[in-house]
Design a protein around this nucleic acid. Sequence first.
DNA 1: TTTAGCACTCACCTCGATGGAGTGCTAACA
DNA 2: TGTTAGCACTCCATCGAGGTGAGTGCTAAA
Lengths: 348, 348
Amino acid sequence: MADSLNERSQNILEAIVEDYITSAEPVGSRAISRKHNFNLSPASVRNVMADMEEMGLLCSPHASAGRIPTGKGFQYYIDTLLEVRDLNRSEKQNLRNSYRFKNMRMEDIMQEVGRVLSGLSQYTGLVMAPKFISTVFRQIEFVRLSQGRILMIYVSETGLVQNKVIQADRTLTTHDLEKISNYLNSELNGLTIHQIRAKLNQELQDDRIVYDQLKKQALSLSCAALQDEIEDQLYVSGTSLMLGQPEFSSAEKMKKMIQTLESKKLLIELLDQGQSAQGVQIFIGSESSHVDLEGCSLITSNFSNQKGAIGALGVIGPVRMNYSGVVPIVDFTAQLVSRVLDRETEKD
Amino acid sequence: MADSLNERSQNILEAIVEDYITSAEPVGSRAISRKHNFNLSPASVRNVMADMEEMGLLCSPHASAGRIPTGKGFQYYIDTLLEVRDLNRSEKQNLRNSYRFKNMRMEDIMQEVGRVLSGLSQYTGLVMAPKFISTVFRQIEFVRLSQGRILMIYVSETGLVQNKVIQADRTLTTHDLEKISNYLNSELNGLTIHQIRAKLNQELQDDRIVYDQLKKQALSLSCAALQDEIEDQLYVSGTSLMLGQPEFSSAEKMKKMIQTLESKKLLIELLDQGQSAQGVQIFIGSESSHVDLEGCSLITSNFSNQKGAIGALGVIGPVRMNYSGVVPIVDFTAQLVSRVLDRETEKD
DNA sequence: TTTAGCACTCACCTCGATGGAGTGCTAACA
DNA sequence: TGTTAGCACTCCATCGAGGTGAGTGCTAAA
């Protein structure tokens, strides 16, 4: 995309981005020429900077301030210059020890992951629980509520509990429901929601089913229960942590950020977008993408167990984020969570 | 508590509080004497104000500013001067129409209530779901996870689903679990958790139980499942709304507020405190109570169905809150929610 | 091609002056 | 005795002037 830079320009861009990441202030030519020993005078650095400003990689808030990287500048840095090292053994062990998953519900695990992510990164942690449609069936139960409504409780193979209220035939007795759930539990065990839906559609076509009362009721109930999507669950933690960053020092910007995090919709959308990708992804909320995320970056990774229950986790913070520090944490955490999901699935 | 005020002082205090509620700025003697037709000169008003300042009901941010009510001043206003009118029929109908509870899960209802409360009040809505211990048993199910862990799913009579992972005897088969849950579902139906715990303790004393394998297993499992508390669930909505208030105009204060709302612990504590009370309660977070809530007020009310499932809802905002507008909303919403809980319980 | 030098720009800080809102006090008045 | 007009006083907010420092762009020399 950007015209390619020669090595010197790259070095200078890298230095500017990294200085800016730690200081959050415009970086001047003198600082660059002194701190990093390029053996270049400030004047030379200025020339390079002027070129990069023209290319749209840098900008200056006003005439006599230093330069700050633009969204495009950060993008270039991330695509070309950023070197992400793997965590070493003891770092991995530390990270593992940060997480306490013992005897936790799936919900608690997700929340814990968010909390740790945000604590380690000092930004805001995001975790999207495995999507309903990608989960594998383990068990379903029905509870009769008043007025013909039925509470459906679905447990996925990883122990994720989701529930939903459905309107159903008033004549169904508790005993009927029990028979139906028994039937479904034996029929659907081990299938993904995807497969289940295919199966349901197929059986809907089958005329013979009208003769089997139980099957018919089971079919209509499971259609109501499993055909529609269930809303994604997004856990946001450490909102206040991120607000310590200088980019949110003005009350105005802080409020906007909170609004964005609170509505969740946009975040879910973004996490969805990276769903087909493998490994860590970085979104930069510059002019291009959504207005509400201007000035923010999102580092995410998917996690999934072997059967394919797909969720996502990550960290959202200012564009001026410590990428080299946060990326490996997000990456390894996603691997850890994937492994935990697999452990849940294990038969003993 | 405060030395009683004569009528004129009361009128002036009321005027000051109400002016301050709408303007968020210190109120001067001239404004009071002009806008409200007490037929008093500013000088007279000043005399009264000076007295009330001495009594601790007012204070002035600096020598040449007007007065603002202190926490104590607000307390006096709320205790003595505030007149809360009931909503009229059409207002009630409007409020009823704001809530869409149809085919919603308990969780969704709680969330919806929070959203509407915050939307109507322009402050932050809080809803604490009925406490586990106060709920009435409807159904329990067990799902085997890996490594001898069992997922317990508990549904209360109002349709509130709670789950928990317990460590149990590895030898329990799915079939055993089914028998146990059937047994428990018939034994415990309609009992409160309170009653169930008493029953469990009693049976633990009973030696004969060792001879009945099923009963023994059921007992140990339900102890693990129902004996401990389950964490309270608090729904917080409209955080960003409240941040529009001028008291949070500084980034510093905004951040503090977010932290308080995010940690939830303190809020749950406060909502718990009002649990024995009836009707609407108002907490003023002045010097007396917790530091984190300085400058905030909390308007809450409990809700409960006839069987006693107790939760709480309310609104948190700056001390300078529109009490006369918000109190009736909180009050009537609590009544509505109570009625919804009862409807859930109804047999059809 | 690089660099030293220099003029220039602009944010930021401080300082002092000004104006306005509101108070407290005092003395006069009903 | 309570109320009020008048007045001096206090303090904040705003504005503009002036100085400072960081950093730039340009030019000419090495």
